[in-house]
Design a protein around this nucleic acid. Structure first.
Lengths: 381, 381
DNA sequence: TTGAAAGCGCTAACAC
DNA sequence: GTGTTAGCGCTTTCAA
């Protein structure tokens, strides 16, 4: 390995001058700088990053902990994050936590022990009390934190507003019997937290056919305590809240229902089968508002199994705007998220911490979104 | 930040002893070690990774350069790689090259300038001559390199064998007019390299309706020179080769065809529309063998547009075994890859370089696969 | 078994 | 402008 010292020697200057020249600092005379550059070139010199890191305290690495990269929502987020981080001159380490509490703990606990200068994490099992305890002041930015306190800089998907928009869209299409898929009715909240797992493997068990009645906004609010105590899948609650409120507002709570399911295609398929069975039994729903695109794609698949047509018999909406919804049969109406915007905001929040500006209080930013109207809701009831 | 020196002071020993104790070296007396550990605990000491890296030369970081993480094949691979790398005590940096030659160059050129101890790269634009020049001996493992020389340790998908299996499967289902989607006939190879882009944005333009006749194995082999010179999408050629050979062997080259398209769902959709037009004109194909799952999902979508039924009218196969094929309508018959196996092999190849074992010659490993029979080929012609 | 001393390669004060 | 000097925090000889 060729060192700075050798370059300096070859260029006939001191290491510090060489250092300055190589970093383009302007205290070096142009011709000197050129000589150094030439020497470096000839020796094929490349700075030792570890040494630089030790000296400067900057490693140029940020890390991102998400459940997995193989679920479309997360891979879109990772993709946007990598691009954004790279544009800011950093590299991105990824860590998959697999919806597992221990892995989330480990990532947080080891954050300080790592070359990483800062951690982005999308927690699914840990509350921000735990996170604060583990993170010990290490620069941290959260994704999808909906807790009542804002203790960390956070970037959230527009869960509430998005779901509201989707439901209004369905209602606007004349749908009156809406099944909210992936959200349990209030009475089941405890159950949700026990079995619920975004994209996970537990069989979703739901209080099928219950109407949202008992889950009116008022009732639900009373359950917030439970919600904060049990820190499972967070976006879920935000979306349930919104769904309940909008259904109430539209006067659809008697005809509609909320059914829990896994937040993956498997969950959607299963739920669709259950819906088909209900239809046979005379209880028809003419729309399914899914808590994410994977569920929605599964629902479309499951309805096809049962010979129910989308959108003629049942309209379906998703949430996230993952690419796959653009070429499913039928294509999926969804709430498209601004991934690039989310990434840009999160990275900006992180870099702000490194500057020597005064420290500001943590903020929570909700990403922009738009309703992507496609085939799965193209027909009015 | 609390340093080793402080821990040593608190424990009443020297830094070197403390260092040994913390790393569990056995020259330290047990009770001394315990004292050090206790001190470290109390001070909440955590070793400075940069310093350790500088001293030891080991950063514990590996990096993976792939076109993008938002295409399912790549995200599955990234997911498997992250898990595997983590199990081996390393962290994974990802870098998206976006099917762009300059980005691939940059990643390779900067590899040495990075905290990363080794680079995994799936090149799409660079030949391994270029790669060798840029990589300068930095530990490197390739994915998807099919060039004639084996100059790097490489892990490949079973492109040839996989496509062959898919085509045999279609033939076994009585399909005789097979369209190979995503592969241009020989005459167009030059064109492919100009416009072809895995998952990219160029509109695929194809010599529609040409049969594979002119593209028999013999003819094709003559074009290998071109193939090696132009290092675009590599898996492509391997798969074309196999397709041509098997179609020949099955006596289906007169009735079949090869049509180029983008390696994304958009390409598949477009191609399906073209196929539908051909069908109207009396030229029917009863099967489409796609070079990857994204194309296949697009083809299914595009055929639906035209009212052609899958699998009754047209059978469709994919390649890669991405999760989405498991819940499409219909579900997709595909060549499922062993992602975990690919990752394990690639990581083992990398770690072997770090050991002090004798250096062996580079190897090329082809991953295992199996045919996943699903609905898209469930009916015989 | 422990400690002192010497760096790993670089950057940042400070002097010249 | 440039060189000298002094570390960043750790590991690793080598002596004691």
């Amino acid at each position: 390995m060729v060192t700075l010292k050798e370059v300096a020697a070859k260029a006939g200057v001191s290491p510090s001058t060489a250092s300055g020249a190589l970093r383009g600092l302007d205290f070096v005379r142009p011709d000197t700088a050129e000589r150094v550059l030439k020497a470096a070139q000839e020796l094929n010199y490349t700075a030792n990053v570890s040494a630089r890191a030790l000296r400067s305290g900057r490693t140029g690495i940020l890390s991102l902990a998400i459940p997995t990269v193989s679920i479309p929502f997360y891979s879109r987020l990772v993709s946007a994050m990598e691009t954004c981080v790279e544009h800011n001159g950093y590299q991105l380490v990824i860590q998959q936590t697999n919806f597992d509490e221990q892995m989330e703990r480990r990532v947080l606990a080891q954050a300080e022990d790592t070359l990483s200068e800062g951690l982005f994490i999308l927690p699914t099992r840990l509350g921000n009390r735990d996170i604060a305890a583990l993170t010990q002041g290490h620069p941290t930015v959260l994704f999808e934190d909906y807790s009542t306190d804002i203790t960390f800089d956070t970037v959230n998907a527009p869960s509430g507003n998005g779901i509201a928009k989707a439901i209004r869209h369905l209602a606007g299409r004349g749908r009156t019997h809406i099944c909210v898929a992936g959200a349990a009715p209030v009475g089941d909240i405890g159950t949700v937290t026990k079995t619920g797992r975004a994209g996970g493997h537990n069989a979703g068990h739901a209080a099928t056919g219950r109407t949202a009645r008992g889950a009116s906004a008022g009732t639900y609010v009373a359950n917030r305590a439970v919600k904060n105590e049990q820190n499972s899948s967070r976006a879920r609650y935000e979306r349930i809240d919104a769904a309940v409120r909008v259904l109430d507002e539209l006067g659809l709570h008697d005809t509609s229902t909320m059914i829990d399911c896994n937040w993956g295609a498997d969950g959607g398929i299963e739920l669709a089968h259950r819906l088909a069975a209900l239809a046979k039994a005379g209880k028809r729903y003419d729309a399914v508002c899914c808590m994410n695109d994977d569920i929605a794609l599964g629902v479309i698949r499951g309805l096809a199994d049962a010979g129910l047509r989308v959108p003629q018999d049942v309209a379906v909406t998703g949430f996230d705007g993952v690419p796959q919804g653009g070429w499913s049969v039928p294509t999926l109406t969804t709430i498209a998220l601004d991934y690039e915007g989310m990434a840009a905001t999160a990275v900006a929040m992180m870099l702000r911490k490194f500057g020597d500006n005064p420290v500001t209080l943590p903020q929570r930013v909700t990403a922009g979104f738009r309703l992507l109207e496609r085939e799965s809701t193209a027909v009015a009831a």
